[in-house]
Amino acid sequence: MKEFAVFWGCTIQTRFPFIEKSTRIVLEGFKLPYRDIDGFTCCPEKSLVNNIDHAMFTLTAARNVALVDEKGYDLVSPCTGCVSNLATVKGELKANPKEKGEVNSLLNQVGREFTGEAKLSHLVPFFHDMVGIHEIKKRMIKNFSGLKIALHYGCHMIRPSHALKNDDPLEPKKFDNIIKAMGAESVDHMTKLMCCGQGLDRVDMHDKALHFARIKLRELKQLGTDAMVLCCPSCFLQFDNNQFLMEKEGEKFGIPIIYFTELIGLSMGYSPEELGMNAHRVDCEPFIKKWESLCAKTDCAADIKAGLNSGGGILG
């Protein structure tokens, strides 16, 4: 596999360092050739920067891609927004040589060159396509059989599809394939592809952001979902933090929000504490408890294992 730089993005490093932790644990665990490289800035955040200055949006993203191009690496990010923004600019510049020339004439003055050769992937399609479901199953020592998981893809994992080209933008399958391979039921639900609505919190419309979170959480509660699994820090903020705020005001949902890397880490045998899951605002304990009791039930070989571990074994 080609070496790749991890693009952590601002939100994960500023607000959710535990997501970086679980991501590193999983990348290490799978022995993947990931690298930390110097010089990344904000991707930048499209809704904020592009609305004010399209040129600065394009230049900043092109510079970040140039850093990876230069090293001959690919780029992988556990943030949907970062990949989507970088890929959007990469697509725009590849389709528009004049604009690419303008961007490079500026980048060259700081010693950089955008070629757009690096492949830019979000972590979930990367695991599906590059690591492979077979490999995930091989590393898994516990599965999630018997648990109802609601997947939230997050808009920018799959859209805009002309730039990301990784799944069907209106009927994606890859995240589902992974979760099903891990033994869980991927709960079919009406709001599965609905935008989380976190963007509303970034434009001073907190009540509307809560309203968007509420619509999905209500449906999941009604369906008896054990957890929501996602892989976007912005969606995580929306469903973990804003759910917590609504619960404080008396609306009870009780839907643990689990990051993709945490779920993989759990399946590999890491504890919730090692993965930093105790830093979530909505308690993951109900999900973990149910999972542990299901694991205990289905482990037919428990007696044999205990015997072997005690040192006695069959030779006792």
Binding site: P17, E20, K21, D36, D38, L106, L107, V110, G276
Partner: peptide, 21 residues
């Protein structure tokens, strides 16, 4: 959390680029 030191910032080069634009 036992995470490594953050990598070097690209802020200076970014500011230069902004001025050039």
């Amino acid at each position: 959390l036992g995470l490594p030191e953050p990598t070097a910032s690209g802020a200076d080069e970014f500011k230069k680029l902004h001025a050039l634009l």
